[in-house]
């Protein structure tokens, strides 16, 4: 089944601003990354998927349902985590998530149970009985995620879930989203303007820019055979480059970095051996995926 399908979807706002233009995309269940700069049309797309806005032209289907004609059926099966602050400060996390669970049609006792469960899954335990106003940003983001999860949706729409989080918080949130997508069996659409972030966790990537589709594909297809090792030595970069070239490794230069395509684990040994033989101070040696950003950059460049 197709998770989300749009067909020449266009949204023009009252003031003549075109937020989405002629967007045709179909994605399979899994973790879907939706990337684009601010103002690319990500939030508009989410509102169209939820049936909060009506498309100007074109068609949209979510989980096989049409949100323009049957928004209630779609929203029963979808959980939404907005980008902005949306939590009343004087309610406790548990009260809020319980109430919103009831608003999704859960019976009273079920709502209470599932609220505690959802909060536990996102990592809030005893804190859930304290007022939200005293929560850290990370905890607030978790409550926002829990309220999207409380009614057991089949699809989660997460609008910038890592907004405002520190690096550790971002990693934790991404790990949580990844877990929801893989272990919980819930499909996830993650919006972000940070490509490097979503590419780590998603199966499919949809990139939009200025309301138009840049590219939509499986992440594997975009990053296959592109792993590179980056080597940095404090001195003797040229000597090392010559040495590696002598070992039949196709070495590339990028500033002070040497880039070596990663063939297999043996590549590590060859590089480490070369560095040790030349007795150079090794600064770093790490695996770099070919950034999807570069693919987009190349693609955009070729259009110009």
């Amino acid at each position: 089944m197709t998770l989300i399908a749009t067909e020449s979807l266009t949204k023009v706002y009252g003031g003549g601003v075109t937020a989405l233009s002629d967007l045709t995309v179909a994605v399979e269940p899994g973790i879907v990354g939706l990337v684009g700069a601010n103002g690319a049309g990500k939030s508009t797309l989410i509102k169209l998927l939820l049936g909060l806005l009506a498309p100007t032209r074109g068609r949209v289907r979510v989980l096989g349902l049409d949100p323009t004609t049957d928004p209630a059926a779609v929203r029963t099966r979808v959980g939404y985590m907005p980008e902005h602050d949306c939590l009343p400060p004087d309610l406790s996390g548990a009260e809020l998530v319980t109430h919103l669970g009831r608003m999704s049609g859960l019976p009273r006792t079920v709502a209470r149970e599932r609220a505690s469960e959802a909060l536990r899954h996102v990592g809030l335990h005893e804190e859930r009985h304290r007022p939200v106003g005293g929560y850290s940003t990370g905890m607030k983001q978790r409550v926002k995620l829990a309220q999207a999860l409380v009614h057991d949706p089949d699809l989660l729409l997460l609008d910038e879930p890592t907004n405002g989080l520190d690096p550790a918080g971002r990693d934790a949130m991404l790990a949580l989203v990844h877990r929801i997508g893989t272990e919980f069996g819930i499909s996830v659409l993650v919006c972000s303007h940070l490509l490097g972030e979503v590419e780590r966790i998603c199966d499919t990537l949809v990139a939009i820019d200025g309301g138009r589709l840049l590219r939509a594909d499986h992440i594997a297809a975009m990053t296959s055979a592109t792993d590179v090792l980056a080597v940095e030595v404090s001195e003797g970069t040229d000597a090392l480059a010559a040495r590696l070239a002598a070992l039949d490794l196709p070495v590339g230069r990028e500033g002070r970095l040497l880039l070596v395509p990663l063939a297999d684990q043996g590549t590590y040994d060859l590089i480490l051996g070369a560095v040790a033989e030349l007795d150079l101070p090794l600064h770093r040696l790490d695996q770099r995926r070919h950034r999807v950003a570069e693919l987009f950059a190349r693609r955009e460049g070729s259009h110009v």
Binding site: L50, L52, P71, A72, A73, R75, T76, V78, Y80, P82, H84, D85, C86, L87, P88, P89, L100, M103, S104, G105, Q147, H151
Partner: peptide, 18 residues
């Protein structure tokens, strides 16, 4: 007013109730 201020309304409107 409390709901307007805290921005909680998107959480209501993204749920099934009309």
């Amino acid at each position: 007013s409390r709901d307007l201020r805290s921005g909680v309304l998107p959480l209501y409107f993204s749920r099934p109730l009309p």
